[in-house]
């Protein structure tokens, strides 16, 4: 996958999250990082048919949002089925980085760094 195509696909995937999901909008930077990590990792595992660890309630909660997202990606993006697992991993890693940037590192939300809820 060349860089331009990957970027385009990442943006499409970001768009699905931004338009429909709420999990990425937790109010503090550390929560956003956990949410991105938890949900996008599990989404990647689901898309790659890997075993998803569901040991804790938190795992299950990440997982339900991941299931929704994986289903939505499969339904919306025909090109997904043509990708190898390695490609999906690369793509999901790029998505994860992009989400970390948009929601945390590049975010203009001044409340993310508050120390308390």
């Amino acid at each position: 996958m060349d860089e331009a195509l990957m970027k385009e696909r990442v943006e499409q995937m970001v768009d699905v999250i931004m338009k429909n999901c709420l999990w990425q909008f937790h109010s503090r930077a550390w929560d956003r990082r956990d949410q991105n990590e938890g949900i996008l990792t599990k989404t990647m595992q689901l898309l790659c048919d890997e075993r998803v660890v569901l040991e804790t309630p938190a795992d299950r909660c990440y997982w339900v949002d991941a299931v929704w997202l994986a289903d939505e990606y499969r339904a919306r993006f025909d090109w997904l089925s043509g990708l190898s697992k390695d490609d999906i991993k690369v793509l999901m890693k790029a998505l994860h980085e992009r989400m970390d940037f948009l929601m945390i590192d590049g975010s203009l939300n001044l409340e993310l760094t508050d120390q308390h809820y």
Partner: peptide, 23 residues
């Protein structure tokens, strides 16, 4: 979440109850 996410966050930290945002 605007009015009460604080409560869910604290419940998650202290009691490990996950927070699921819905519409």
């Amino acid at each position: 979440a605007r009015s009460s996410e604080y409560l869910c966050n604290e419940l998650r930290v202290k009691y490990g109850i996950p927070r699921l945002d819905i519409d």
